[in-house]
Design a protein around this nucleic acid. Structure first.
Lengths: 133, 133
DNA sequence: CGGCATCCTCCGTGATACTG
DNA sequence: CAGTATCACGGAGGATGCCG
């Protein structure tokens, strides 16, 4: 699955979570959607809004979104050429998911406060002393 | 970012969405959390609940979750050995995110209904004829 | 400006085998 | 049972160059 074999996404998984992961795979995918939430964006605008992304990756994700009906690609036959990407109704419904992600992430402490040395690993002996079960 | 360089996650991104993606990276990560939501699970239970996952991957994700305080690993010094993984309070708050994911995924049509041939690509000429803005 | 083509790296994952 | 070790794969992603 995933980055190895399988998951050709010829037919999406039954599980909703799995379906989501199949469509918004990769670190950039969700961030691109995030940039499109406020409104339509041009290719270059997306590039500038996503520091570090390569045009190759941006095109790749945008094309996949287009294929799955998350994004609409509109070409304006102008000089210089202009292309706008905007979320479909389905794509805009992703706002709730991203909001949930952001809400969760901001609620957890920084990774510094739970370094590996004082990680959550524990033994049942300690557990019985405490109140695990 | 992502699978290339950077994103060593020494310090999580400011953006909540990016933080989420940094912690729940990879296709299996979220699915593992999903299996832990109902309650504590043992290593083998998780393996069986996630068809196709390898012990290597399962261990890897579980260790990362442990590092970031999403999962608690409890070792029972028994014969045969028993290890339970359970979500922390922060981990359990992921339920809302997964619910949002599932809700969104089930609301979108199957990929068959929007094949590439009839994809959403369109020209501005058509847009003016229609009602884009 | 908005790509596409090509080559390359990185890392999540799988498969198999082995250990406490 | 619960991993660990090793090798290998493949796709996401980066870098560069070129084109309409």
């Amino acid at each position: 699955m995933g980055y190895g074999r399988e998951m050709t996404v010829t037919c999406l998984p039954e599980c909703g979570v799995a379906r989501f992961l199949a469509l918004l795979n990769g670190p950039w995918a969700t961030l691109i959607v995030r940039e499109l939430l406020p409104g339509p964006r041009r290719f270059t605008e997306l590039r500038e809004a996503l520091p570090g992304i390569s045009p190759h990756t941006l095109t790749s994700r945008l094309r996949q979104f287009e294929t799955y009906g998350i994004v609409i690609r509109t070409t304006y036959p102008e000089i210089p050429p202009r292309v706008e990407y905007r979320l479909t109704a389905a794509g805009q419904r992703l706002r709730e998911v991203l909001d949930a992600m952001a809400a969760w992430a901001t609620s957890i402490p920084d990774p510094e406060s739970h370094s590996v040395s004082s990680a959550a690993t524990q033994n049942a002996a300690d557990a019985s002393t405490a109140h695990i079960g």
